[in-house]
Structure formats: C-alpha cells, structure tokens
Design a protein around this nucleic acid. Sequence first.
DNA 1: CTGTTAGCGCATTCAT
DNA 2: ATGAATGCGCTAACAG
Lengths: 342, 342
Amino acid sequence: MENKTTIHDIAKALKIDASTVSRALNNSPRVSQKTKERIMAKANELGYQRNLLASNLRKNVTNTIGVIVPRISRHFFSSVISGIEETAYDAGYNVIICQSLEQLKRERKLVETLLANRVEGVLLSVSMETDEFDHLLHMKNNGTPFLFFDRHCEIEGISSVLIDDFQGGFDATEHLILNGCKNIGHFSGPQELAIYRNRTAGYRKALEKHKIPYRPELVVRSSLMENDGAEGAKTLLSLPYKVDGLFSANDIAAIGAMKYFKNEGVKVPDDIAIVGFSNEPVSGIIDPSLTTMDQPGFQIGQIATKLLLEEISNAPNANPILAKTKILKSSLIERDSSRKCN
Amino acid sequence: MENKTTIHDIAKALKIDASTVSRALNNSPRVSQKTKERIMAKANELGYQRNLLASNLRKNVTNTIGVIVPRISRHFFSSVISGIEETAYDAGYNVIICQSLEQLKRERKLVETLLANRVEGVLLSVSMETDEFDHLLHMKNNGTPFLFFDRHCEIEGISSVLIDDFQGGFDATEHLILNGCKNIGHFSGPQELAIYRNRTAGYRKALEKHKIPYRPELVVRSSLMENDGAEGAKTLLSLPYKVDGLFSANDIAAIGAMKYFKNEGVKVPDDIAIVGFSNEPVSGIIDPSLTTMDQPGFQIGQIATKLLLEEISNAPNANPILAKTKILKSSLIERDSSRKCN
DNA sequence: CTGTTAGCGCATTCAT
DNA sequence: ATGAATGCGCTAACAG
C-alpha cells in the first residue's frame, strides 16, 4: 500500500481536473488526444497505478470469482484450478482460491469471506464433512451465482459439473469383461460419497449387462489407501475361486493391490487385470499393466468457469438459467494394448 | 453483487446513525451492549454483510497477499501453496493465486494485476522464461514487499526461501557412496537452471570428499522426462565399466531408469542403487527400492509466508529488514532399509 | 455512549 | 472537450 499517486496527484501536476484524468485513463473518447497523451505520460512518470478497490467500489463490480476446494495439493483439484484460472483469466476475472481442508467449519467461514469480498460467483467442491447446507443456501438467497464441481449437493437451481462415475465404473468393468475376465473384484470407498456409490453401481450394471452374477464377496470397501489395496488383494486371493479382474475405485488402492499380487507371483494383467480410477498423476508412469480411468480435471475447471461466468452475466435477468448438470465422461487409458486376461 | 443492505439501511431501520452501526459491527467498546444487540439482530435479519471493498478502501489495507507460481498443478507448487494458504489464513490474510504458465509476459501482467489489487505483499517463483526483471524491480521501487521461493533472481534486498540443492545433491551422492557404490551416474537437467547446477555441484563435491574421480561420461543431461531416464539408463549400461549407483536430479527420470534397468534384468538396488529428487508424490508409492530426496513444499510455503508477513508489518519502518535467504534442507527418504550396492 | 462531519480513490452526471 | 459536484460503503476524528 505504498503507491500513493492518485488521479488527483496527476491532475494537480497537470493543472487539470481529476475527472478528466479519470476519463483519459479509461480511454474515454471525450478527451482530446493531446491531453490524453500528456496524462498518460505523467501517469507513467509518477508510476501511477489504478486503485482497483476504489474503482470497483465505485463501479460496483469486482471481476473476481471465488473457488473452494478441499485441498489444493490433491492433483485432481489443482488440475481443475488450472482450468478455472485459465478460463477466468482470459475473461478478465481474478480468482481467489481457498481450501476447506475437508472441514465444514472452514468451508462456512470461507463462503462468508468470499461474499464479504464481493466475489461475483463461486465454484466449489464440498468438503467430506459437509452435511449441512445453510451456508450454501445463504449464497443462493443472497443472489451470488455459484456451482458445484466434482462433489456436489442437491440444491434446487444450482448447477454442477461432474464426472460420470456410473459410466466410468461401467466402462471399467466392461473393459475387463470384454478382455475375458469372469470373476471381477471391486474396491469401493466410503458409501456416503456419491462418487463411490455411482462407480459401484456402474460395476454392477456392467455385470448385469453381460449376465455375470453379482457376488457381494467380490466387493471390498475401504478408504482406498495403498495398504487397503494390498489388504483387498489378499482378500480376493483368499476366495475359493480364481479372481481374474479388479476394478478399483481409485488408483492408489489399485497400485497397492498390484504390488501385492506381483509379490505373490500373481501376474498382472495376465493372471488378473486391473483398472483403477485415476486421482494422481501416478498411474501414468507406474506400470503399463495398470489401466486407468482418466478424470479430466482441467476440462472440468474450464467448463465450470464458463458456466459460472454465463450465470454471472445473466444474473440480473428476471428468469434464471435453468440449472443444468454437465456431466463429463472419464476416459479409459490403456498403456499396454496387449492386455489380456486368461 | 446483490447484497444491497448497508450500514445505512440498518441505521435507518433502527433510527440511529450509521457510524454507531459501524462501531457496533466492529465490536467497539463505545457502544452500549443494548444497542449492539439491537444492531446485530437487525443486521442478521436483513442479511447484512460488510462490504470489504469499502472497508478496505477506507482503512487503506487489503489483508491480501498475491502468489505467482509457474503452474498450480505441479505437485511441488501446490504443496507450497497449501503452506502459504494455511499460514496466511491463520494470520487473517486472503491469498490470490496466479500462474505464469512459465511465460514472462504473463508474469509481468500478473504483477501489475496484483499491484492494482493492492496486495500487501507477493510471493513468487519465477517462470523459466524470466530473464528480465523490470516488473520485479518495479515492485521493489513501488515498496511492495515480496520474496522468492524455490526459483529466485538475484535482486538486492529481496529475500528468498530455497531448497538447498547443493546439499541435497551432496547427501544423495554420499548416501550412495556410503552404501558401497563406486561408479555413480548422474542425471542432470537444463544447465540454465540453478537448481540443476547446484545439484550437480553437490554430486561432484561428494565424489571429491570421498576421493572418487569425477568422470564426465557418467553425467547425462536431459529434460528429465521419463523416457530421458530410460535413455540415460541405456547410456550408463553401455559404459565399459559397471555403474552401480545413480543420482537423478528428479524422480521421473529416476523412475524411467528404474524401469529400463528392471527390464534389462539389472536389479535395483542390488546391481544399481538409485536416488532421485522428488517432484511428484509418485515416488512414495512407486517402488521401495527407489530412495528419494523429499522437497518440503508445504514447509517452504509456511516459512515464505511468515517472512513476508513480517516484512509487511515492518514495511513502514525506515530501516528495512535485511534480505535473508532461508535455505531448507531436503531430506533423504528411504523406504527399504536393506538397500545395498554390490 | 452516540451523532456529525469528512474523506479513502475513483467514475459519473450535469453543467459549461 | 473539460470542470464541478456527488456518492459507492465504510471508518475515524471530533464533538457533545
């Protein structure tokens, strides 16, 4: 807050009025070219820099959107943020990024902070703790456009940008089936999260489509950490019949399982083929025998931002945009085309 | 920008003056408990929310710091950002995060934007393109406190928070030597970047200390992508003598090399032990036979923010803080204590 | 304890 | 084409 030169300073130096300076600086056509140049020159000389706070206060805009994610350092979210940042930047918007650290309390406070900062819209992915929605309803009543990405809540009139977890689960499982797998295990996560329920539903749907009976003992629930994966692999190996495929709801657990299998002399993918949802950039380099479902974070960020900016510019309208849920397809990434079960 | 209720609205509703409302809202002791309560109640009822723009303009503060990183989605940077965010948040500061995408032009514009937004300080890691420093000098002359982290420039009076790459390279190499390695290869990156020069210097220093002659053919320069690692591994295997250790300036190349070795039947770490600098969370789960140098991103963010906030609060002082370069030690992470060369 | 007055820096309306 | 006046929403100095 050192830059002291204001339009008044440069006005005084030029013995003209501040309003003329303001106009010149905004490139108004109602200032002669000559004075414009004098003003610009002086502004440069004095190192003038517009005070956006004052300008925004006056104009009642901020050109800023807020983003709340659970954790910036999770690769999926930082990819989304990249997409948001880029799209917003191109549209002349600033972005304030915050992390809830998966805490409802923090999420609440962040919403307040963003509103107090008069952001023109908010993009958010709710924390795992979020089971009350007062703060979100507040935003809605408040008239601040916002939308969810990845993790959402059912709030009427609020759009979401999501990954099609059901389809992803279906694709992953069908991929295994089409490669000859008969007994396909599945690692799932906390059932409170829709993403895991949906992935599991996709798994079941694919089995159903191909007339493979669903067996509960093939589904292992955990927190999907690496050791959970190893544990799950052990469970699958202990079954009285041979498991030849595995669909893991994330890649970390898949990797844990893969290591366990290899250690036990079970060949991947020849003895057992694995597909995992990709959360980190890990799977891309870890092993060509691991197939992953790519989650297009960057794209989600772009789309979410576009939608939000659209809502922002339409906000004054009497009739709001219909809430739409944009669903993105995750894509299967195979690194080794020779994958084969049996 | 819908929230219309101002302190005047609630003042009018209560038939008192706006200044009293303001005081109450700021919990000033000079307002009776009774009116305070009436005011708070009314504020709640009307859904009042302080307009921080106006407040900040008036108070001439923003409680905001800016951060510029090359890419948010690089894990190292998102870790740093986490550290920054948390520390800033605790101190009541907002953070505006921007990415230069490694472009000088963008970096310049971002600096302008941040200054226009009257951030009280800036943390930045320069882009790979940055070979002119006008925008940084501008900040300095402008009196906006800022400091570098990870990638820095030599600007008088500007502090940096860095990783001790020299020491890291030294530690990594010495680790290999102490485990019995005699012929240690080294993957290095672009020599324009100090981090790689320093890691290489550490490598040479360790050799020197242990009286192992430096052999240029053991040093392979590349962009350190995974296939560069494989290529480098091939080069090392083609040497007329047996290479039994490898220090890679990043982990991706180390992984590429590891895969290549394993494919060729060369055992890691028994035939050849590998240490790599860790950029991504990859190495933690990829293979216990890969030792990595952990780069403490989160910690860097914390420290950099603390320093910056310190400079901000001291800024009005006549005598500025002496620029200090805080250097963090990276730490060697071994996952398999049975590591052994020969 | 509360009201009055003034102004942060800027953009805009209304004059001229 | 330019100047004068007004106020965005808030806080602070100064009364009383």
